[in-house]
């Protein structure tokens, strides 16, 4: 009755119990495994082209347009950032990697614009929520750039200038 609160009872006897002597040698199973390995080796040697392995970095993968790569900021026609510094992206960001400082804009049709727009790429988890939250399509992750590596931390702190000039170079045509 009831459940044991101490977990399953200790097993009696060793692990190999119940096997025949020839079974406990595992000889047949080892041969089976070796055969599979050899089959793949032979097939790959004679059908090199069918191999799924990609010769990275000489060959680049094609992830398609849905890849969430490094962010970029969109520009208006006059070259200024499209961003209105509403900070929806930094609000939704689960990694807290976007920091924006807003300022009054003097232009008649623009009330608010970003003074700074920094992303900490080391903290970013590439979830894409910032892109979804943006009410004016100012931030995108369609650059196709996924090779984000550097030998110092400062290189991952990207600012507005960098993000505005980020191109879609990484996208395969």
């Amino acid at each position: 009755m009831g459940y044991s609160v101490h977990g399953p009872k200790a097993r009696t006897g060793g692990q190999g119990q119940g096997l025949l002597p020839k079974e406990s040698l595992y000889l047949i199973e080892i041969c089976k495994g070796l055969f599979i390995t050899m089959r793949h080796l032979v097939r790959n040697v004679f059908h090199m082209g069918d191999m799924p392995t990609l010769q990275y970095p000489d060959e680049k993968p094609d992830y398609g347009p849905w890849l969430r790569g490094r962010h970029r900021l969109m520009k208006r026609e006059d070259g200024s950032p499209r961003c209105v510094a509403c900070q929806m992206c930094s609000t939704i960001c689960p990694a807290d990697c976007i920091s924006i400082m807003a300022m009054d804009d003097d232009r008649p049709d623009v009330e608010k614009s970003p003074e700074t727009f920094d992303i900490d790429l080391l903290r970013c988890v590439y979830c894409g929520l910032c892109v979804e939250a943006c009410p004016c399509d100012a931030i995108r992750m369609d650059t196709g750039i996924f090779e984000i590596a550097a030998d110092n931390r400062a290189a991952f702190q990207v600012d507005m200038d960098f993000l505005l000039n980020n191109t879609t170079d990484g996208v395969k045509s």
Binding site: V84, A85, C86, C136
Partner: peptide
């Protein structure tokens, strides 16, 4: 409805 740039939002 310019909530994104409105301080009251």
């Amino acid at each position: 409805v310019d909530c994104p740039v409105c301080d009251q939002a």
